[in-house]
Write a protein that binds this DNA or RNA. Structure first.
Length: 723
DNA sequence: TTTGACTTGTCTGCC
DNA sequence: ACAAGTCAAA
């Protein structure tokens, strides 16, 4: 039997998944088992072999990046455009549904998406307007409550509670929702919830989509939350085929409502579904795989899966104990330079960290060594203060009732509309149940404001109206340019001094360029360019604008590394309190999630994995001493290789598993730790490289900056620590 | 109302 | 360490 071209180069299990008949399917895909490949080939199979129209396929991913990649790969396989196939993130697809049926869900046509930062500001303001003590009721907590309820599919009226604390939270939720509805604003959770309600309550709409999407495929299913799952169930109806692909060991979004249990739920809700396990790993060396398997085996309640590879052992995993975070960064840069000098490409290396705050030191070290790098995530382009200011003006032009945008820029740059005036406008808006814009207009017209404030507010209103008239015919690029200049934003940032202000000016200019280059894609033909651009800004936050073509080291959090692979991977800050994070140590479930995150990180590495930690680290401006992460002790000792400074002093293998005190051993023996900087009266400053013996007679090796490396007896050398 | 000095909370993560 | 929030002076 000759193999179908779409099945060539696939292993037996993969072929089984790709060529399965209609019906439900769960693909349990381990890290590096060719999961994306299977999904892409499956879609191509449906279109080419089974003759399904691309219109009948719905594919859901978690990131825009994954969606774009998947579409491209399917088109490549099919050999033609797959226009009409719906592929995107849950949020992107929900947005599309709401746009198409805005009237059915009671939204204005030009509704806008607010990000969690906007959301928090809005909530903070509402808490104040309810005369609640904002110490007792932090906006963050209320935000968490509201989003949590929305993720569960709950509206305020569904919540019945006798707990006074929750009653107040419910009150905030109610008021928040009213404000959003009035202003035409939709938060991330609301996108999903509204789209779900649309499908649930509107039979015509529901049946339309149920009849259309015969095949529904969901990637990263372990990260779906309740509302996303309910969404899938509604679309599936009783006749459509649902394929879910996931890995319970890579579930790392429990904190935002993801439920691994959805996998079990799927098996009981979708009767007769076939389960296919992909366990052959094509990515990592067997050493890396063995280590990762060993770590994850400490978790309980796994669906069970044994990853294997027929690849070679490769090098052992390196573990480096930095003296502090600067030393850790220095070591990483040195290893990357070594990799590059041996012919490796920088793009093939990635530095992963637990939290974004860790990136700064790494950046500095790379910058210093002139090694190009690229950061994913973190503070993204459209999240920047100056960009959000400019976008707020654009939003007001599109919709005067956008209270969040008005709040943001009515006095940015300062134009004499202070807190007192704003409080009066807010109060009027609340009493009259209208937007800030309308209330401001009313107060100016009815002379409810004192002379100076009235002038200030009046001229702001006029400014916006005039700007809108003038720019009616403008292209998006010209419009943004005009807005930035006429609003005084550009002048304001130009007047500020310092490097920071300069970047802000640059960013504003870049925003204009982004507007000039922006084009609507197929799915957005129903929108105005302005609205489409604003939606892009919220849903994608500007991933694509970095220079992808330069050969650069990749920096990102462990979370954003999911789904990616690199020949050389550094996992940094492997310390108790950092990774696993302090917050995760209290609840047992959270610790297992951290362990899965560790598993995700390790399995990103193809050839070489380097783990690093710092014995001393500055956090919140305080020097802290962390122990090495417990996850290190879960790695088999024979796959680990401990590196010490430039001399690569190795610990005898009899240390085997590391106890957490071992890393401070050198300090106890000599009073100095490896990597520490010291000053000698004659030789100047240097770094401790190695040590020998114990007590005052011990000798230490120091690499002096000016005179090179020397062995000195601790008792006689008059050394002073340098900090 | 604005500005600058001072105090306080924050560092998980993301669509 | 940094940013956001608070408070008093101009």
């Amino acid at each position: 039997m000759s193999t179908h071209p779409l099945l060539a180069d696939l292993n037996e299990r993969q072929q089984q998944a790709v060529s399965a008949n209609d019906g439900h399917m769960l693909v349990l895909a381990g890290a590096g088992s060719g999961k994306t490949r299977v999904l892409v080939h499956r879609i191509a199979w449906l279109i080419q072999e089974r003759q399904y129209s691309p219109f009948s396929v719905l594919a859901v991913t978690f990131t825009n990046k994954a969606a774009t990649e998947m579409r491209g790969r399917v088109e490549q396989l099919v050999g033609s455009s797959v226009r009409g196939m719906w592929i995107g993130t849950f949020h992107g697809l929900a947005h599309r549904l709401l746009r198409a049926h805005y009237m059915d869900v009671g939204l204005p046509q030009n509704f806008q998406i607010i990000d969690s930062d906007d959301q928090q500001r809005l909530i903070k303001r509402l808490i104040k307007s309810l005369n609640l003590d904002d110490k007792r009721w932090p906006a963050k907590q209320a935000q968490w409550y509201i989003n949590g309820k929305k993720d569960e599919g709950l509206r305020p009226q569904h919540i019945e509670t006798y707990d006074p604390t929750e009653q107040t939270l419910k009150e905030i939720y109610t008021l928040y929702q009213e404000s959003c509805d009035r202003a035409g604003l939709v938060d991330f959770a609301e996108l999903l919830l509204r789209a779900h309600e649309l499908l649930r309550n509107n039979r015509i709409v529901r049946e339309h989509y149920q009849n259309r999407f015969r095949h529904i495929l969901v990637d990263e299913f372990q990260d779906t939350n309740s509302i996303q799952y309910a969404w899938i169930r509604l679309l599936a109806g009783s006749q459509n085929s649902v394929t879910i692909v996931g890995d319970d060991d890579q579930s790392i979004y429990g904190w935002r409502g993801a439920k691994v249990e959805n996998i079990h739920q799927f098996l009981s809700d979708f009767e007769g579904s076939e389960t296919i396990r992909l366990e052959q790993n094509y990515r990592s060396t067997s050493t890396i795989l063995r280590a990762a398997n060993s770590v994850i085996s400490n978790n309980s309640g796994r669906l069970g899966k044994d990853l294997w590879t027929d690849g070679n052992d490769g090098e052992p995993i390196s573990l480096y104990a930095g003296f502090n975070e600067m030393d850790e960064a220095r070591y990483i840069v040195a290893r990357i330079e070594e990799w590059r000098d041996q012919g490796g490409s920088l793009q093939d290396s990635a530095i992963l960290y637990r939290s974004n705050a860790q990136s700064r030191i790494l950046e500095e070290a790379l910058l210093h060594a002139r090694v190009p790098y690229r950061i994913y995530g973190g503070l993204r382009f459209f999240d920047r203060q100056e960009i959000k200011d400019a976008l707020a003006y654009l939003r007001i032009l599109g919709n005067r009732d956008d209270d969040a945008a008005i709040e943001r820029v009515i006095n940015t740059p300062t134009r004499g509309i202070g807190n007192r005036t704003m409080d009066m406008i807010r109060q009027a808006a609340r009493e009259r149940a209208e937007s800030l814009w309308q209330a401001a207009k009313y107060m100016v017209n009815e002379k409810q404001l004192a002379g100076r404030a009235r002038n200030a507010v009046g001229s702001f209103l006029d400014f916006i109206e005039n700007l809108d008239d003038e720019t009616e015919e403008f292209s998006l690029g010209r419009l943004s340019d005009e807005v930035i200049k006429k609003s005084g934003l550009m002048a304001m940032y130009e007047a500020e001094k310092g490097e920071k202000a300069e970047t802000r000016v640059e960013n504003l200019k870049e925003l204009v360029t982004a507007c000039e280059n922006f084009t609507l894609d197929d799915a957005e033909e129903d929108m105005t360019p302005l609205n489409a651009f604003l939606a892009h800004a919220s849903l994608e936050a500007g991933e694509e604008q970095a220079d992808e073509y330069q050969d650069a080291v990749q920096l990102m959090t462990l979370h954003s590394a999911k789904g990616l692979e690199f020949p050389l991977v550094f996992m940094t800050g492997v310390e108790e309190g950092l990774f696993p994070s302090q917050q995760s140590m209290d609840e047992p479930g959270r610790l297992e999630e951290e362990r899965r995150l560790c598993y995700v990180g390790m399995t990103r590495a193809m050839e070489k994995l380097v783990l690093t930690y710092a014995e001393q680290r500055r956090i919140y401006g305080q020097e802290l001493f962390h122990k090495v992460s417990r996850f290190i002790s879960e790695i088999p000792a024979d796959t680990l290789h401990e590196v010490r400074m430039q001399t690569k002093v190795e610990k005898p293998s009899s240390y085997g598993r590391f106890n957490n005190a071992a890393s401070h051993e050198s300090f106890e023996q000599t009073g100095y730790s490896l990597g520490q900087r010291v000053r000698h009266p004659k030789f100047g400053e240097g770094t401790v490289l190695n040590y020998e013996g114990t007590g005052p007679q011990s000798r230490i090796q120091i690499n002096f900056d000016n005179v090179g490396s020397k062995w000195l007896v601790v008792a006689y050398a008059r050394l002073d620590p340098v900090f």
